[in-house]
Write a protein that binds this DNA or RNA. Sequence first.
DNA 1: CCCCCTTTGTTGTTTATCCGACAAATGACC
DNA 2: GGTCATTTGTCGGATAAACAACAAAGGGGG
Lengths: 196, 196
Amino acid sequence: MLANPIQKEKIDPRVKRTRTLIRHAFDELLAETSFKSITIQSITQRAEINRATFYAHFPDKFVLLQDTIQRAFQQELEKRTLSACHYSDDNLLALIITVCEFIAQSDQHCKTIDSEFDMLVETQVKNQIRVLLEHWLSLTGSEIAPGIAATATAWAIYGLAIYWKHNRSAAKPSAEQFAQQVFPLITANLKMVQPI
Amino acid sequence: MLANPIQKEKIDPRVKRTRTLIRHAFDELLAETSFKSITIQSITQRAEINRATFYAHFPDKFVLLQDTIQRAFQQELEKRTLSACHYSDDNLLALIITVCEFIAQSDQHCKTIDSEFDMLVETQVKNQIRVLLEHWLSLTGSEIAPGIAATATAWAIYGLAIYWKHNRSAAKPSAEQFAQQVFPLITANLKMVQPI
DNA sequence: CCCCCTTTGTTGTTTATCCGACAAATGACC
DNA sequence: GGTCATTTGTCGGATAAACAACAAAGGGGG
C-alpha cells in the first residue's frame, strides 16, 4: 500500500500502471465535478480498472486526495528546486510564492465548492510546508526545537496565502510582490531559532 | 490470441490495456526507426510491459505489423463509411482515393526503407481491398465468382495507387483527380460480373 | 417512517501479467 | 571461420488484477 517514502526498489509495472490510471482518472474528475460527488465507482470506471483493485492501493478517496495534493505540491517544490536544499532568504521567499501560486492554481483547476475538500488540502499542504521548514531548520543545528518554529511558520505562510487569494481582487499584488511584503513577518517566526 | 473478427464479448480490461500499450509503442517506434531494426525487446520496453507478455498477444512483430496495418486501413475506410456499405460508383471512387491517400500517408509516417515492410503492407492492404470488393459483389448476386473479379480489381487498384505515389511529382494530380482518371479501367474489371 | 437504489468495503476464485531462467538463433566484429 | 553479445521463443512459479457475490451503509422520494 502506498509505496515507501523513498521508492528505490523496482516497482511492479502493473501497480505503476494501475496507480497512474487511478490518479489520472481522479485528476480528470476533480476538474469536472466536486470532490464530494466523486465516487470510488466513478474513479474506477473512468480508469477502466476493477473497483476492488482500487482498494488494493488506496483505503478511500480521502487518502487518494491526500496523495494527489502531496504529489502536486511536491512537484511544484521540485520545479523550483526547493525540495532538497538548505535554508536561505531566497529559498524562503520562493517557498511563500510557491504556496500562493499553488493555492491559486488548484483553486482554478478544481471544480469544487467543498469545505471538506479545502480542509484536506490545507492540512496536507501545511504539513508539507512544516516538514520542509523543519528540514531546513534541523540543518542549522539550532538548540531550540525546530518543530515549534516550523509549525508556526507553516501556519502563517498558508494563512497569508489564503488571505492573498481572497483579497488579490482589490489591490492585485502579484505573488512575488505579496511574498516580499510579508517576508519580514515570516522571518520573525524563524528568527527565534535562526540567529542572524 | 488476437480477438475474434467480431469482438462482441466483453474483453478483460487487462488485455485491452496491454494491447493498446503494445500498439502505441509500436506506432511510436515505426515513426522513429525502420521496421527491420525494431525488436520485440524495444517494443515491450517502450510499452513498459514484460517481454513474455508480448507473446501472449502476438506471435511475432510481423503479425503485429499486419494487425497495425489492418486497423489503420480499416479506420480509414470507416472514416468514409465504406466498410459496411453496398456497391456504388461513388463508393468505388472513394475506395480508390482511400487507397491512394493511405499509401501516401503511411509512407510519410513511417521511417522505413525496407522492402519487406512494403511487401507486408501491400499484401495486407490488397487483401482488405479484395475482401471489401468481394463483399460488395456478393450483395449483387452475380452468377460469376466474385473472388476472381475482386482479386483482379484489388491488385489493379493497389498497383495504380503505387504508380500514383511514384509519379505524382511529375504531373501532380490529386488523389481525387487520379481516381477519376483511372475509374473506367477499374470498372472494366468489375463489369464482367456487374451487369449495368 | 419505509422502500428502493446506489455506493461501499470485503471475500474467494480465476486469469493475465510479471519475473527469472534457459537454450537456440542471430548478428557484429576480429 | 570463431567468438562474443544480443535477441528470440518458451517455460514454471509468483503476484497483481479481474470478476462475481455479498452484507452493510447511505440517500433520496413517496
